[in-house]
Design a protein around this nucleic acid. Structure first.
Lengths: 226, 226
DNA sequence: CTGTTATATATACATATGTATAATAACTCC
DNA sequence: GGAGTTATTATACATATGTATATATAACAG
């Protein structure tokens, strides 16, 4: 179990008896990612197709995944992590600047425009496929909800505005943003500003609603002072 | 163009030269409907499979549809019409009774519980597939939005509550209900009451928000007097 | 070098798919 | 009855898929 000097050469991979893998799990995921898109669903990917895209023999696929479905789950998890990190950065960056709502949504749509296939996956494919796949998507969505919920509670305390059932608020906003994002992906870029505007309005209505329900109607202007 | 006695026998089908169709477009759609479900996406349906389910030879499919995609579009349109009618009835029935929000959502979830495959289709498959298919789903969603928008404006006038950007409100509610409905379909029935409760809260927040934005905060209690 | 072992490929097979072509069956009209 | 017309089927073919089996290849240990 001790590491020799030779092992260090292989850089964080422990010594290896047998042929070295010419391709990694991640390479396969990346190859699959090039195949999906607005017109191609993960659920229609075939093992041979992915293998072809990755430049390996069909059977080599089995060295990395039990079947395409397992790949799909890995794909979703990767997509969720990537997106959460991006949104997280946008959020902390936003606090200093303008409205949290506005800049978070803009960051989201910005990402969407960047042809990030990851986003396509998370937004559109959540509700079709195997149980394992759907669970994976749901889990990622819940992560988003939790983080947003924490943010909402924190902000409400800071600004001393009330907040009614923050977990429901977080869920509503998350689902709404994802749903609107999914439809936005099929629209030409000219329409994105309008969609952003609608989304911002929706989110503000929800926030206004939860604050009113919490009985803090008097503090509303404070929140939207940009 | 005149109808003879013999024509009347065939009941609204005009006289027909050549063999009579043993199967109709609708039969094919119905057969396809039996194949889709929580685990089967429309986009994975094969021509032969649908033909098999309908009890016809693969090639006979072409007499009715150019390809599976055309069937999928027809399926969506049918689903949309069916659902709109159901919700419409629920809505008019609701006005006399309790809160419009509560009873509309309950009607929606009720339908969902009834294993209506139509709903599965509309809720989940909207964002993957051909352009024609996605357009069809989007169109149906827009119908919902328009009807809801009319309702909202009418109700706002009746109750003299303000309403800010009703089309955005209608869109938010529609997308939210559909998104929540899609996730609800994977949950056991015991959780449905909780989901309904969340959804009702979400919609009330939005309505409260739009009313507040319209500057009619004083009239809020009136709306939620159940 | 030899052996061991993990990895990748080649070949093969049963099965599924979309569709072309030709044949058959059921119907209307004369 | 037969002629014309249309719906349906039978057969066939090229192609794609998942996977089983066997084999080749590369890295390591000794």
């Amino acid at each position: 179990m001790s590491l020799t000097a030779k092992d260090a050469r292989t850089d964080a991979t422990r010594p290896h008896a047998g042929r070295r893998a010419v391709i990694s799990r991640e390479d396969l995921i990346a190859a699959a990612l090039t195949l999906v898109g607005p017109h191609r669903s993960v659920s229609t990917l075939s093992l041979r197709e992915v293998a072809r895209a990755a430049g390996i023999a069909p059977n080599s696929f089995y060295r990395h995944f039990r079947d395409v479905d397992e790949l799909a789950v890995a794909l979703i998890n990767q997509a969720g992590e990537a997106l959460r990190q991006i949104i997280g950065e946008a959020r902390t960056r936003a606090v200093a600047e303008r409205s949290v709502v506005q800049s978070s949504i803009e960051a989201f749509m910005e990402q969407l425009r960047g042809d990030q296939k990851h986003l396509h996956l998370l937004l559109r494919e959540g509700t079709v496929g195997s149980d394992a796949f759907k669970d994976a998507v749901e889990t990622q969505l819940c992560y988003f909800e939790e983080e947003l919920c924490n943010d909402l509670v924190r902000l409400a305390k800071e600004r001393d505005t009330g907040i009614y059932r923050p977990e429901v608020v977080a869920r509503a906003i998350t689902r709404l943003v994802f749903a609107m994002g999914a439809t936005a992906m099929d629209q030409p870029e000219e329409k994105h500003p309008e969609i952003i505007d609608q989304l911002v309005t929706m989110v503000r209505m929800i926030i206004l609603g939860t604050q009113t329900m919490a009985g803090s109607a008097g503090q509303i202007e404070k929140t939207f002072s940009r």
